[in-house]
């Protein structure tokens, strides 16, 4: 009872990255308040799925395995989660802020009449005293999220309803195996007693999901280009440097909108959150929506011909100049000075 639950998304027999990141965070939160970590897995042909999940320190996995449950459909998944939460009374429930999680979690929260915080960038425990009543709360989940188009950061709490529900975007939390040999308990959900015809109201006629080809999230070095890169041709220089350094190319939204690179490379509030050991921002002004996705990079270099560009404020090194002049010099030095 009152444990921490993570809804695990499944695509093609794999647990989504964001779910593994949430399990990692869930384990830490569970330890802090001395609760168990439980995972919810809903899909079809899930035999063996626990091997992907237990290493993240999960104590109990609830498996709902049925042909009606894959691919994802809102109503049957919501019904199963609502039933489970009514029985288990979780303290906290976390979902990925993905097209699945942001479709499912609000429906579940509405059915349970509990609060849901969207798109959190940080989760931690804290105390709270209600101003009016003076009532004190210990270890509430502080759910920290950007709102207002990324211009403000709000700390949201749900003092009185449980579970405290939140969605979190991919890449925001770190994924870390707890113990490769960790084992927990598997509980099977009896799907047939829960679902009826009404839950199958939406029918999937066709589905094309691409395997994620570009994955800049895990890259240790990201050379990111903005509108100031100016052309696809200059972006090619960024690709050359990235390949040389063993990194990936990222981009601002303005660069994506200009058609310089694919959307999958967009860093920021409506793109990917990254935390590489080196982030080189080339011709990026540093709008909050962009920096929200990269300001935790270990080292930041800004190449910009405007010395007042906001990005320079958070950079460790600022190169005042043209992208097209600087990158070839970096490439040249690197080629000459390493084997």
């Amino acid at each position: 009872m009152n444990n921490i639950f993570v809804y695990c998304e499944i695509e093609d027999g794999h647990v989504a990255e964001v779910s593994l990141e949430l399990l990692t965070k869930g384990r830490k939160l569970a330890n802090e308040i001395d609760r168990k970590l439980e995972a919810v897995v809903i899909g079809h042909n899930l035999t063996g799925i626990e091997k992907q999940i237990f290493p993240f320190g999960v104590d109990v996995i609830h498996v709902a395995d049925n042909s009606r449950l894959y691919p994802f459909l809102t109503l049957p998944h919501a019904e199963i989660v609502v039933n489970l939460f009514n029985e288990e009374q979780p303290e906290i429930a976390l979902f990925g802020a993905t097209s699945v999680g942001r479709d499912l979690a609000p429906r579940v929260a509405s059915a349970l009449k509990c609060g849901l915080t969207a798109d959190c960038t940080s989760l931690m425990f804290g105390d709270h005293t209600e101003n009016k009543t003076g009532k004190e709360y210990k270890n509430l989940l502080y759910q920290i999220r950007p709102a207002f188009g990324g211009n403000i950061i709000a700390t949201i709490i749900n003092p009185d309803t449980r579970p405290q529900m939140a969605t979190v975007r991919e890449g925001v939390m770190k994924k870390e195996v707890f113990s490769a040999t960790h084992k927990g308990e598997i509980k099977h959900v009896n799907v047939d007693t829960i679902l009826n015809e009404g839950h199958m109201a939406v029918q999937i006629v066709e589905r094309h999901i691409e395997k994620q080809k570009i994955n800049i999230k895990g890259a240790p070095i990201i050379i990111s280009g903005g509108y100031g890169v100016g052309s696809k041709e200059t972006f090619d220089l960024l690709f050359e440097l990235a390949e040389l350094l063993g990194g990936e190319v990222g981009a601002s939204r303005a660069a994506v909108d200009a058609g310089f690179v694919d959307h999958a490379r967009q860093v920021g509030q409506t793109g990917i959150t990254v935390r590489p050991k080196l982030y080189i921002a080339c011709g990026i002004s540093g709008a909050v929506q962009h920096t929200a996705g990269m300001n935790e990079s270990a080292k930041i270099i800004s190449i910009n011909n405007d010395p007042k560009a906001p990005i320079n404020q958070i950079a460790d090194y600022v190169i005042n100049g043209n992208v097209a002049d600087v990158i070839p010099k970096m490439i040249k030095f690197y080629k000459h000075n390493t084997k």
């Binding site: 609060g115 709000a154 700390t155 709490i157």
Partner: peptide, 8 residues
């Protein structure tokens, strides 16, 4: 159920 505790 959700309360805004702080805005920055």
């Amino acid at each position: 159920p959700t309360k805004v505790k702080k805005i920055e």
